[in-house]
Nucleic acid binder design. Structure first.
Length: 731
DNA sequence: CGAAAGGCTCTTTTT
DNA sequence: GAGCCTTTCG
């Protein structure tokens, strides 16, 4: 089979242009993944390029895996050592191998978000800054912004322009020191240090230059400046760089992804070949048109013409429900209906939402209906307390300097080592200029550095020595045990199972540990040091969608961000409301609002056959129920593209009882019932402004009654609060 | 030292 | 609604 078979002219051009820089602007569903796969296959099979000399960067590990599978089908097992993976994974590999040129120890551990925040809190405390006044998250974000521009602390403090930045500068300096002392890198470091490595070590750069002949980058619209510099550096003089992206699908600016990279690419490589992929193979004509209307409202974009040969398809369903519980109920019952009618399989359906919190109501409804679903990382597995505890033990084994992990587990399970002792340990370590673990060693060996005696009571010393002995045993045994045996040794000797089982949700938590053990099993075949390193790297650099299993026939629940790169025959987007999509946080600026619109666009363009945009009239936000209005994005869709239907009436025309009557526990004070009529569905009423109507539904909401009335006067269906709307009951 | 209880503050997206 | 912090008491 020829690799170019079945490609359209634009796709063919993208695949065949292998010399020099190429910029592919690809609309949704235009086959960009296919183009990348075929391009790699073409390079290897037709042009005889060794896989060893090709790098393909994907956005998630899952995308990398799928790319590999695709290539395997295209060219068989001749993949050799093709470099394929996310920026972070590729950089971690480079730094492990060659980082020592800039002082990065190959046993470094990677700090995730949570570790980063925990270290930042410690930094703030040390400097004497109030974490309430300087939110660790805000500082983390500022540091991340700096690192995304390859700004070291030294450079940062030179360029501060505000008091806040000055504070950030001070924190950044110390934070980075602590990272170095812990022999740890945060996510941004993986990228930044790799760039610094290439900047500062000509030898290393030359090594990679002579290796990589072709570089390909997917989702280029979501890369940041460091990543761009990395690509340019790796691309060498030949500039055989091929980037693929879609400005309309840029949704990570908050992570400092910079759309200007696309403009810069055209400027930096004026001879770059530009390829436009505008034919959509995914969606129906109507869905594509709906999407185009939503995105074309954005001002800061280049218009482009997408088209498709696909069927006209069906109108978009815009549906309103009363509450988010009913929204969820509607989604599940509609899914069930489609499946029953043979219009879709369960696995064809996906539900997308703006915030993770929204998944809860959906999950409850799916459970209630007994409909199977897969949730992409709910309370994310690798962020669970018990999972991270075990990982922390393993990290300290790999790298005893890792202070964040050490402090996390030194008293878990409880060993009587409290906060006071810990801060003493830390300050003692600091004054001696050694790591906490080294300090433990000193205490064990009773070497008190000549004059200074350990500032601990005998009970604490005993506990510290005990813990140190435990870890020493783990470290010693880790040299010979495979990962699963090491895992069992750790959980067993540390008494972790017992500790969990005696606590809350012990059984469930222990099962999570066992699940982690299963993951460890995948690394069992690797010899001792590598198995542990690979496992720890794997569990830190996973992305949520990595766990998605397409072979399971169940509905998929994902955030809109996670949905990028996926496609489904049936898509429900829920919470299409002001404040949710677009999110409150984006009200401040036009640029953020445009990103919300792109997010909506990404969601819509995931749909192949059927699209549902659902919004609720009331939504629970932070514990209390508030009214919600339909999203402005719905206004961008012409009425002719929308199916009539509107308000959901429940199954078989009846309104379902509420799923959960949590309000029953706290009876709300009743509205004085004297002048407010009691109404039920079917009652005829009169409103001063809207005229006569029939009650469709009513519901008690926070001590008030919410009534839905269908008016006969032409104003249609209205929702009213009984205490405000002066409704008159008619007999 | 640590478990338990009560009060506080949030609005998001994640490699 | 939940996560985080502080306070209180054994």
């Amino acid at each position: 089979m020829d690799i170019l078979d079945g490609l359209n002219p634009a796709q063919k051009e993208a695949v065949e242009t292998i010399e020099g820089p190429v910029l592919i602007l690809a609309g949704p569903g235009s086959g960009k993944t296919r183009v990348i796969a075929h391009r790699v296959a073409y390079l290897i099979k037709t042009c005889g390029v060794s896989p060893h000399r090709i790098m393909a960067v994907t956005f998630t590990n899952k995308a990398a895996r799928e790319m590999e599978e695709r290539l395997n089908r295209l060219i068989g097992a001749a993949l050799g050592n093709l470099t394929i993976g996310t920026f972070h994974a590729i950089c971690a590999r480079i730094l492990r191998r060659d980082g020592k040129a800039i002082g990065v120890d190959s046993r470094f551990v990677i700090y995730d978000d949570e570790d980063q925040i925990s270290l930042l809190k410690r930094t703030l405390q040390e400097i004497g800054l109030d974490p309430k006044q300087y939110a660790p998250r805000a500082i983390a974000s500022a540091i991340s912004a700096a690192k995304s521009r390859t700004m070291t602390p030294q450079e940062y403090v030179k360029h501060t322009t505000s008091y806040f930045e000055e504070v950030v500068g001070r924190v950044y300096e110390r934070y980075q020191q602590l990272l170095t002392e812990s022999n740890a890198l945060d996510f941004d470091d993986l990228l930044m240090k790799t760039v610094l490595l290439f900047r500062n070590s000509d030898e290393t750069l030359a090594k990679y230059h002579s290796r990589y002949l072709h570089i390909m980058v997917d989702e280029f619209q979501d890369t940041n400046l460091v990543q761009y510099e990395l690509i340019k550096k790796l691309g060498g003089k030949k500039h055989n760089i091929c980037v693929v992206g879609d400005p309309d699908q840029s949704i990570y600016s908050w992570r400092f992804a910079d759309l200007r990279n696309i403009l810069s690419f055209e400027k930096d490589f004026p001879k770059a070949k530009l390829v436009l992929l505008e034919q959509n193979y995914r969606s129906t004509k109507l869905i594509l048109e709906t999407a185009s209307y939503v995105i074309s409202t954005n001002q800061l974009r280049k218009p482009k013409e997408l088209w498709t040969d696909n069927d006209q398809g069906e109108l978009t369903n815009v549906v309103e429900t009363y509450t988010e519980q009913e929204e969820a109920q509607f989604v599940v019952s509609e899914v069930e209906k489609l499946v029953e009618e043979g219009k879709a399989k369960l696995g064809d359906c996906a539900v997308m939402y703006r915030t993770n919190a929204q998944s809860r109501a959906l999950e409850e409804a799916f459970i209630r209906y007994g409909t199977s679903y897969k949730l992409v990382a709910g309370t994310r597995f690798y962020e669970r307390r018990e999972t991270k505890d075990i990982i922390a033990y393993l990290r300290v084994i790999q790298n005893p300097s890792d202070s964040v992990s050490l402090l996390r587990i030194i008293n878990v399970p409880g060993r009587g080592i409290g906060e006071r002792s810990l801060s003493q340990l830390s300050s003692w370590a600091k004054s001696l200029g050694i790591s906490q673990y080294e300090t433990l060693r000193l205490i064990t060996e009773q070497k008190d550095d000549g004059e200074q005696t350990p500032p601990f009571g005998s009970r604490i010393v005993k506990a510290l020595v005990g813990f140190h002995g435990l870890m020493e045993e783990f470290i010693a045994r880790s040299r010979e045990l495979d990962l699963v045996d090491l895992f069992d040794l750790v959980t067993g000797r540390a008494g972790y199972e017992q500790y969990l089982q005696s606590g809350k949700d012990g059984e469930e938590r222990w099962e999570n540990v066992l699940e982690l053990r299963t993951v460890a099993g995948e690394y069992r075949h690797l010899p001792p040091p590598e198995g542990l390193t690979a496992f720890l790297e794997g569990v830190t650099l996973v992305s949520d969608v990595d766990g998605l299993d397409e072979t399971v026939d169940a509905a998929t629940l994902v955030t809109l961000h996670q949905a990028k790169g996926l496609e489904f025959p049936v898509v429900f987007i829920v919470g299409v409301e002001e404040g949710i999509l677009p999110h409150f946080k984006s009200f401040a600026g036009a640029e953020q609002m445009e990103e919300e619109r792109r997010l909506c666009y990404v969601g819509i363009t995931r749909a192949k056959q059927r699209l549902y945009l659902v919004h609720a009239f009331r939504r629970n936000l932070m514990g209390s129920s508030t009214p919600s209005t339909p999203s402005r994005f719905l206004d961008d869709i012409p009425k002719r593209l929308i199916a009539s239907g509107g308000l959901w009436q429940g199954e078989e025309g009846r309104v379902m009882p509420p799923l959960y009557s949590s309000r029953a526990k706290t009876p709300a004070p009743n509205v004085p019932s004297s002048d407010v009529p009691s109404l039920k569905p079917g009652d005829h009423v009169r409103h001063a402004q809207f005229g006569n109507g029939v009650v469709v539904n009513c519901r008690t909401v926070e001590g008030d009654k919410e009534v839905v009335v269908a008016f006969t006067s032409g104003v249609g269906v209205k929702k009213l609060l009984l205490s405000f709307a002066r409704l008159e009951k008619k007999e």
